[in-house]
Each structure stands twice: as structure tokens, then as C-alpha cells.
Design a protein around this nucleic acid. Structure first.
Lengths: 211, 211
DNA sequence: ACGATATGAATGAATG
DNA sequence: CATTCATTCATATCGT
């Protein structure tokens, strides 16, 4: 998701190193979990390709155990990750999907960070109804039509080959990129002849029902 | 606080300002929203004169739609603006009101926020010990140095429950499980000799029941 | 030109 | 589940 964020934090910082907090340098290990690219990749894979959205306790344990190979992680991290991911996806929609009483697929992307470049098959349906993808199998019907490879390879670091991932910044988490659409949005009635005569009124108008 | 960044005009940047700045392409150089003075004025007005601090989705939409007249803007910009504005104001206040000598905003232990939620009283069952004590030298009363925004934070919260997993019916039921499990590290097969993985298999393995 | 600061953006962690 | 808080990163802007 962050095209150019975090410059370095995927280092396998074994040990919580919470002890060395007071020291000046080494100011890298914060208390909060910093997912590695591999972890994120897998989490997204689970989320998008497997429809996992609210893993159960067992699943969380399993996932975290699996992800622990790529760096330290705990169950709660997985739990929060899914919660946040889901919540933010919804929130984003909430801000952008203003009106549109009828099914209007033109919603594109209001401008939030684009969806994932690698796993972007989410649910192709346009209606608010989710695909309810059960977990595993059967879901990938439309999945990765483009086939991003790693079907059975050591995906250790193979996501570089994808044709769409692009921007391979070696170590960096070159996840999503794009995110520069043309301000589609809801196409407001811009250019309205406002002249700012009464600011107060304008402000109120924003908050109120404006009807 | 705001050094009047009156650049006075909207988008001085205009696209294609590829000049120098590594405009390689990827790097998602979509300039980050630079609010115009009018937009800022209105935002501040909403914030200070109208007490808007955390606009809801609808409000955000309304606000952004309104502000779009003064320059391009999107819901997320408004959202972030308020979030940041509130956060920073608060942060600043924390400093100023501090005036307490030895008071450091970022003392060891993370100050006040939940002491190590992760490894601390996650499961009071077994390790009651150092929950409250913590912090060296009885770090003052944490009395909330700059309490203005919101009384006190709930440090020391601990998850409602500490039963691990539980969840008889491993299916959905996302609501009931919200925060039910303790993040115990049930010590899964850590350090298991995973080495080559077939993504497909791995994912399934995670999701499946104990295959 | 840099370095400092302000601030947009992103996200982990929590709370209700 | 939605909302909010804290933190951190990235970058625009300004000061010297």
C-alpha cells in the first residue's frame, strides 16, 4: 500500500529489543509491529485471494504462526491488521461513495490509495454485496487472470516479476503504486458561482443538511 | 502554529513539474494535496468556530465537496486534515502545559499509553506481576500533562478476556469474537523448518483446520 | 543549497 | 464494525 513509505523496517529485527529504548540511536525498533513485506504480501493474499476478512481465533493463530517466519509477529497483530484493513477499505468507500442511489460502477477510486497492484481482484462485483467468498478454493475464478506467477515457486522474493507490480525498489515495499487517477470523484457541481459573501452561511451550509 | 504558508495560489505545481525531483514515474509523484488558503481558512473555521474535530463521513463528503470550489480536494484530504490538526494541536499542548521539569514527552516505557500491551498483562492469569508497577521511578502521576482534549486515557486496559481461542464454532461470528482471545503466543510450531512453500498450499494450510 | 519545521498521508493499536 | 489516537514517514516550504 505504501509506495514509497518506510525506507527500512523489514529487517528481521529479532528480539523485541524493547530494552534499548532509552538509547539514542537505534531508534528504529518501536514498540509496534512493523510488518515485513513478506508478511504483508501474505496477509493481502489472504485478504484478497482468499476472502479472509475476519479470521477466527484459530485462524489468527495459524496465520501468525506462519508469518512468524518472516519476522516477529503476534496474534493480535494479525487480528488488528485484518480489522484495520477491512475498516479502511470501507471507510474509503464511505468518503468517496457519496451519493449514487443507483448502481453506478463509475465509482472508480475516489482518490484514496489505489487498491493493490498485485492482488487486486477483490470482489469484482459492483454492488454493495460482497462476494462472501468462503475461504480457499473456488474463489479464484476470476482471481489472477494475469497470473502473477508464484503459483508454485519460492515466492521468497519473486514478486518482482509481475508485470503489474512495477516499481521494483528492491528492498522497499513496492506495493501499490498508481493512485493518480484524475480526480474523478463525484464530479461536484464545481464552478458554482460562489463568491464567498457570507462565510458564516457557507460554513453552516456544509454542516447542515443543506437542503 | 501555522506559519502562514500563504502561497496564495492553488496548484503551483501543476503536473509535469518533472524538473529534477526524481520524477522517474513510479514513485507516485502525485503531489500531495496542498490546501489553498481558502480551503485552509474554511477548514479552520470549521474546526475552531464550529467545533468540528472529527467530521463524520457525511460531513467529510459535504466539506470536501464544498471546498472543491477552491481547488481540488478529496474526502481523504479533509479526513486527514482534521485528524492531523487535532492530533498536532494536542501534541503541542502536551508539551506546553508540561512545564514540569523532568517531564519528557517520550519517556521510556512509552510514557502513559498502555504499557506493553503485548507482553504485559495480556493474560493476567499467569503473569500478574509487573503490570502496574512498571516504569522506573514511579513516573509521576501521569496526570495527563496537557489534558484538555479528553480527560484521561484509559491506560491499563487489558483485553476483556483472556481466554485463548475459545470459539467453539470457528466460523465467522466476528462480532462475538471481537476481542476475546488473549494474544498468547501459544507457541505454535515456531521455528518449524518451513523452507520451500507453495503459496497455495501454505495459505490453505493456514486456513484449514489443523490438517 | 541545506537543515528545520510544518504538515499530508499512512497505519498499528485501541476503544466504544 | 466505526471511530479515534498515536506515531511515523514523506515531502512541501521556509529560513538562514
Amino acid at each position: 500500500m505504501e509506495p514509497q513509505q518506510q525506507q527500512n523496517q523489514q529487517h528481521p529485527n529479532e528480539d523485541s529489543s524493547g530494552s534499548g529504548k532509552g538509547s539514542f540511536l537505534c531508534r528504529q525498533s518501536s514498540t509496534r509491529w512493523t510488518p515485513t513485506t513478506d508478511q504483508i504480501r501474505i496477509l493481502k493474499d489472504l485478504y484478497y485471494n482468499n476472502g479472509v476478512r475476519s479470521p477466527s481465533a484459530e485462524q489468527i493463530q495459524r496465520i501468525s504462526a506462519r508469518l512468524r517466519q518472516y519476522g516477529k509477529i503476534e496474534g493480535k497483530n494479525v487480528f488488528y491488521w485484518f480489522q484495520n484493513h477491512k475498516a479502511r477499505e470501507r471507510q474509503k468507500k464511505r468518503f468517496t461513495t457519496t451519493d449514487v442511489p443507483m448502481q453506478r460502477p463509475t465509482v472508480a477510486n475516489g482518490g484514496w490509495k489505489a487498491d493493490d497492484p498485485i492482488h487486486n481482484n477483490k470482489y469484482p462485483n459492483i454492488s454493495p454485496g460482497y462476494s462472501t467468498a468462503s475461504s480457499s478454493t473456488g474463489v479464484l475464478t476470476v482471481g489472477q487472470i494475469g497470473n502473477y506467477g508464484y503459483g508454485s515457486m519460492t515466492m521468497e522474493k519473486s514478486f518482482r516479476d509481475c508485470s503489474i507490480s512495477a516499481c521494483g525498489s528492491s528492498t522497499g515495499a513496492s506495493e501499490s503504486v498508481s493512485h493518480n487517477f484524475g480526480w474523478v470523484g463525484i464530479d461536484p457541481a464545481c464552478s458554482s458561482p460562489y463568491t464567498l459573501f457570507d462565510k458564516k452561511k457557507l460554513i453552516d451550509g456544509i454542516l447542515e443538511e443543506e437542503q
